[in-house]
Simulated assay, not measured.
Amino acid sequence: MSKLQAFVDGGKNSPFVLWGGNPPAHPTMPYYLTADEVKNQVNFTKDAGTVKIFDAPGAVAAHEEAYFETAVVAINHKASGRDRILKAFDWGWTGKGTTPTVSKGTDIAGKDSGLNIKSSVSSRFDNIVKNDYSTYVHD
């Protein structure tokens, strides 16, 4: 029988924190990017901009299956006091990192992205976030 693990990447219940002895990327919210990374990877003005997203999870090579769901979040969206999910992405691998779970994915600039891009997160995503950050809410 397989053992499944689910956690917020860089979150307080992640291997990065529990096994690595590191502080969470954010102490109270499920944000992967630190404030310095946001300064370097996010360029947004009013309603347009770019967010540079990159991840190379090394643990994939040690697991038969690895599934990910990533969200781009507008923190304190329009000074509402609440976060808003702007986009979400499903991605991953099977076969210890040899076979992508999304064969082609959503086209980005005319190219297959390898990501299933969607407008909202799954209930599974919300359950994992609630396990790590029980008071976190988003629109």
Rank of each mutant, 00 (worst) to 15 (best):
K46G: 10
L115A: 03
K78C: 11
V60E: 10
N22S: 15
T50Q: 13
L115Q: 01
L18W: 10
T94Q: 02
N22T: 10
T98N: 11
D132M: 02
S123F: 00
Y136A: 13
D36R: 02
T45E: 09
R82P: 01
A48D: 14
N127C: 14
F7Q: 05
G11Y: 00
G97H: 06
G21D: 12
T106S: 08
G97A: 14
K78M: 13
K118Q: 12
D9S: 09
K96S: 15
G21Y: 02
M1Q: 15
P100W: 01
L86D: 00
T28Y: 08
P100M: 09
F89G: 03
T34V: 11
V129K: 02
N43R: 15
Y32K: 08
D47P: 07
F89A: 05
L86T: 06
A35S: 09
F16R: 07
D55G: 08
S14M: 03
V121Q: 02
V137Y: 05
P27R: 11
F16G: 05
F16L: 10
I128F: 00
F125Y: 14
E64H: 10
K87W: 00
S14H: 03
L18V: 15
W19F: 08
P15L: 10
A56W: 14
T99F: 01
E37G: 06
V42F: 03
Q5T: 10
T28H: 05
H77E: 07
